[in-house]
Design a protein around this nucleic acid. Structure first.
Lengths: 269, 269
DNA sequence: CGCTCCCTTGAAGCTATTCAAGTTGAGTGG
DNA sequence: CCACTCAACTTGAATAGCTTCAAGGGAGCG
């Protein structure tokens, strides 16, 4: 019994059977949402984090003038704001873009999982840091990439993230986003996005439209946009080309890892 | 024995004397850097995190075409990449902008502090989440704010962050950034930044130039830029009404400030 | 004194926005 | 099945915002 969320965490820390079972229990209750519904609203302080099991969602903010800024996409396997209970309140909203299947998890449960299961704790940390890294990449993109490269880069990112959980392994996977959503992601007007996308289509770098984009040749799109997946930190623990360092986990074998972090006194409380 | 880093963490979790002493010991070794030196270089996997005790530093990326994108500023009291040892390798560099006093902390020490001292653990988490929140705000700004409002908003943020650790309580505090640095922060050309800044100067919203900016009236600048400090999550744990947060530091006199944040149980020292 | 870094200004041109008016396609009810 | 509707997409034209190139000015420092 597993799901894409658990699969994703498995990429990030060596979870044992007990870890997987605990996560499976935590995500066993599921809910369905239609497209366009808010899971979390700006200003609230929710009691649950949500795991997206199917569908696409996004984190966004509405500016005083009514314009929208999309800050992140949540694809199947992603959790939203697993950590947010530490902060006072949400400063953005989260909304479904397609019909979604989600698993709500009480923050209490997350805290307990993190406290008693070091590997889950590590995997959650990893997720937060990857979120931050993606945010940095987007900031670079909005600031310093041309609009065509930025949109192409974004498609590469989403496909790569989907592939990392076993989706989008062939080129027929449809990314269900409208041009307006892409515009609010890239900080552009929807009219301009439309023109850029037709150019990309003419160059055979993307295909589709109307809430369904496909990429015929991801390698070409990556080359075009200068996409380097390093910032997604996808490579499993243990595969690290850099020289050995005193900092710990990346070079560690599973045994080293457990020896170091599996002891119960590491997480008091 | 305390410093701005410890002071900042005290705002974020109720640290006891032992916590403070442990942090003081961890940051007791200090180093001096000239302006323009890299503390951490892209692609490396450093052994130390660095706490900025004096001076300004920034996190940045150089794009393939040679342009720079600044992703974050580190002001006194900030730590850089306290958590980075979990990830494979750095995907950006960190450089001093002014001469800096920094305290290097081995990642081992950070791990131990986090493991054995729950309040420090909580405060570090908080720091990471605030960093992420700032990144989101910047992304919104680059995408959806006009260039004058964006730069004004940025000045508000930096001043507010400085005030939260007791710096910049009056208007004479100089923000030591060049126009090129501001341009790489806002994703603009330095020529355009120059023109926007002269406009802001004409409107008496900012003063100075040449690596030294001051804000004569932070309230006016906040109103102009639509700055809401909520995303900095400065209010102490437990106090989280919106009204209170927006009110807090910006208009505060020094006495208000000390009354609120200077109480001895808040700064055990 | 002369160097360097930072700032300033002008002009030309590109990029992106805004406004406005269609078109297309999927879904809905008759 | 067809008309109707709505959201998504498309296109054009005018213009604002921003960049680039280029040249020059001013402050601080050895």
């Amino acid at each position: 019994m597993t799901n894409l969320f658990i699969q994703k965490l498995c990429l990030r820390a060596p979870l044992c059977d007990a870890d997987v079972n605990a996560l499976a229990a935590a995500t066993s209750r599921i809910q369905h949402y239609d497209a366009g519904q808010d899971l979390i609203t700006e200003g609230s302080k929710p009691d649950f984090a949500y795991i997206i099991l199917e569908g696409f969602a996004c984190r966004y903010r509405i500016m005083p003038d009514g314009s929208r800024s999309i800050l992140a996409y949540l694809v199947p396997g992603d959790g939203c704001d697993l950590h947010a209970s530490i902060l006072n309140r949400m400063v953005h909203s989260i909304s479904t873009l397609t019909p979604c299947t989600v698993a709500p998890i009480p923050y209490r449960t997350i805290k307990e999982l993190a406290a008693y299961r070091p590997n889950i704790y590590l995997a959650l940390w990893w997720s937060v840091l990857v979120d931050e890294s993606i945010l940095q990449e987007w900031l670079v993109g909005v600031g310093r990439r041309s609009s065509d490269k930025q949109l192409a880069h974004f498609f590469c990112e989403v496909l790569t993230r989907l592939q990392s959980v076993g989706l989008a392994l062939d080129t027929s996977y449809r990314i269900p986003l409208t041009q307006s959503e892409l515009a609010d992601t890239a900080g552009l007007s929807h009219v301009h996005v439309q023109r850029v996308l037709t150019d990309l289509r003419k160059a055979k770098l993307i295909e589709g439209g109307r809430k369904g984009w496909t990429v015929p040749d991801l390698t070409r799109l990556r080359a075009f946009s200068g996409f380097d997946p390093g910032y997604l930190h996808l490579s499993p623990l243990g595969e690290n080309s850099k020289a050995e360092t005193t900092a710990d986990l990346s070079n560690a074998t599973r045994e080293d890892f457990l020896k170091k972090f599996g002891s119960s006194d590491f997480f008091p409380d």
